[in-house]
Design a protein around this nucleic acid. Structure first.
Length: 570
RNA sequence: GCGCCGGUAGCUCAGUAGGAUAGAGCAACUGCCUUCUAAGCAGUAGGUCGGGGGUUCGAAUCCCUUUCGGCGUGCCA
């Protein structure tokens, strides 16, 4: 499926290629011209300013070398032949050469009215593509259940959930997943920490361990446990006590994570427990497979993965000298489970920047296991710090100063957070300005967006109430020819392309930026063009109303993808 | 030391797969509500795109180099 805008680009490209071909054939004799033309990187672009037209091509610039002529000269010669092929596209109003050799195309009214009609026809499916039959697993947040989430998880969550919304809308079969690290070393440490805090309640002289979990949350959990069970477990052997405490605390932490994320509008399709990998021997299975593929060796009683043989930076330990598998070994098994057992075609992991060292070795492990026909995409998200009252508080889990996810949610509205996090590229580190995120003006983009929706909705509702039913027979979309109206329509027409490129690039921020741009034109339109004014005739009024309705449609599609509530009134 | 990411307006950030005069918001200043909600719009001011080379019709964007910052470089996860 395609849209008017993309089709038009293709048609213009065709016209230009045919014209260039004519020029080459008739005016210049070059051998194998078709082959050479084929290699040219001819683009149809949307210029930044509309004075340059709706579309613009670099064809004469990129072919300058081939013809050994100036771009301007080539453009003049190409344009001579364009009339021969105008039948290919009936949206062209005029075309001209700009200063340095760009060929600019200006579109007629039909182009604009057909964009609106296309949206009206496809409705909430506008911008959707045919089902790809591609199963995608997207895993994000997956915070450690040994402690509370922090603000960085809010960024990961917003990016992951919105990306899954985009991919789903685009036509992939998407499954969202939270990977629960409920096994391995850190759970032992968790139990040990809990146990010591529990003992300290009854004996102040008990010393805490250096590499334990120092957070207040551990003390609280131990206290809660003591409130229920008293000193009953003091005399129990320490590893027994640790087990009991883990069984008490871990489900509590996981439930807290789950409920916090639900407040943030994230509802996972799946919660995958690391402990399942142990139960099903999946870790020992992958060790065997790796051994078969000659990808491991033994040293000092530990089992190593020859990561360097498969594109990794250095070799990695899979099974420690003490026989306990590393986190990495479990994670390989987890990925094999995704790709082989569950047979996903693409797996997307959204990881914090502190995990980026993990990327190369995981890719290497996939190579070693022959999982090459599948796609593993890892999106690394830089860390978040909080700006509050003029100060930057750096996020740090160990210092205990971290802004927790829960306290963040208390302050910042979920929709604001989702939009703000999705306005900034994952690759750049982020300073989250709390003071601005809780304000009710343009420093908080969520109000800018919602207000635009309310304004349009208000127009539509008022008209509906006044006339009971609008008469779309008495309509002439050619009347929508002001810069404000045209630009708004043009941006609506760009939506399918935005969705497509967001999906291909796995970029959830693109569509948010698009939304902000769309909304700014909604406000301009609202400012300059009255819809239900007595000063304009009914035909124009109806046409503008039609534009409002299609704009609302696109805004609702995006709101749905991003899970932003759009209010009727503010 | 090595690796990954980043450096764009006073601040926070965009910059459409190399394109035309580098853009928003915040902060500052000036206008616009008896007319569909001013949570808005229009305008002014603000820049050596960290520095230096290179590639070409054309570079914030690609390559090299240098500098500064964040992270990683665990038999931690």
């Amino acid at each position: 499926m395609c849209c008017i805008l993309m089709q038009t680009k293709e048609k213009l490209k065709k016209i230009l290629k045919l014209s260039l071909d004519s020029f080459a054939r008739n005016d210049i004799k070059i051998e194998n011209i078709n082959e050479k033309l084929f290699k040219l990187d001819i683009n149809i672009e949307i210029p930044a300013q509309r004075d340059y037209g709706e579309f613009s091509s670099n064809i004469s610039l990129v072919s300058a070398k081939l013809f050994k002529k100036s771009p301007r000269f080539i453009a003049e010669n190409i344009i001579k032949y364009v009339p021969d092929f105008l039948g290919v596209c009936d949206y062209i109003l005029k075309y001209e050469i700009a200063g340095n050799g760009f060929i600019n195309f200006y579109m007629n009214n039909k182009f604009y009215s057909e964009i609106l009609c296309e949206i009206d026809k496809k409705k909430e499916n506008y911008g959707k593509y045919e089902q790809k039959n591609k199963r995608v697993l997207i895993e994000f947040v997956s915070s450690n259940p040994t402690g509370p989430m922090h603000i960085g998880n809010a960024r990961l969550g917003a990016l992951g959930d919105c990306l899954s919304g985009i991919l789903n809308f685009f036509g992939y079969e998407v499954l969202t997943e939270f990977y629960v690290n409920d096994a391995g070393n850190q759970i032992q440490k968790f139990g040990e920490s809990l146990s010591l805090r529990y003992e300290q309640i009854f004996d102040k002289n008990v010393e805490f361990i250096e590499d334990g979990y120092h957070g207040e949350d551990i003390k609280l959990l131990a206290q809660e446990f003591a409130n229920i069970h008293g000193d009953k477990y003091i005399k129990v052997k320490s590893n027994e006590r640790e087990k009991v405490l883990i069984n008490y605390a871990l489900p509590r932490n996981i439930n807290k994570i789950k409920s916090d994320l639900e407040r943030y509008k994230i509802f996972y399709d799946s919660w995958f427990y690391e402990s399942e990998l142990y139960k099903n021997n999946e870790i020992s299975n992958i060790i065997q497979k790796l051994e078969k593929n000659n990808a491991i060796y033994r040293e000092n009683n530990a089992i190593w993965f020859k990561a360097t043989d498969f594109g990794g930076e250095k070799d990695e330990i899979l099974i420690r000298t003490n026989g306990i598998p590393t986190y990495f070994a479990a994670d390989i098994a987890y990925h094999v489970n995704k790709f082989v057992t569950r047979n996903f075609d693409m797996c997307i992991n959204i990881w914090g920047a502190d995990h980026h060292g993990h990327v190369a070795r995981m890719q290497a492990a996939m190579n070693a296991l022959g999982i090459n026909n599948k796609i593993l995409k890892i999106i690394i998200v830089q860390l978040v710090s909080v700006f509050r009252d003029g100060n930057i508080c750096k996020m740090s889990k160990r210092s205990g100063q971290a802004e927790t996810f829960a306290s963040f949610l208390e302050e910042v509205n979920t929709d604001s957070a989702r939009i703000i996090f999705n306005m900034q590229n994952p690759g750049s580190k982020m300073v989250f300005n709390i003071n601005e995120a809780i304000k009710n003006d343009m420093s908080n983009p969520v109000y800018y967006v919602k207000y635009a929706y309310v304004r349009l909705k208000n127009i539509v509702n008022l008209v509906d109430n006044n006339k009971k039913k609008e008469n779309f027979n008495n309509i002439n979309l050619d009347l929508l020819n002001s810069p404000e109206e045209r630009e708004l329509i043009f941006i609506l027409g760009m939506f399918p392309e935005e969705i497509a490129s967001s999906s291909c690039l796995l970029d959830s921020t693109k569509i948010t930026k698009y939304l902000i741009n769309l909304v700014s034109w909604v406000h301009k339109f609202y400012q300059f063009k009255k819809v239900r004014s007595s000063e304009i005739n009914e035909k124009l009024s109806n046409s503008r109303l039609f534009l409002c309705k299609q704009t609302i449609r696109i805004m609702e599609i995006i709101a749905n993808i991003l899970k932003i509530d759009m209010p009727e009134k503010m």
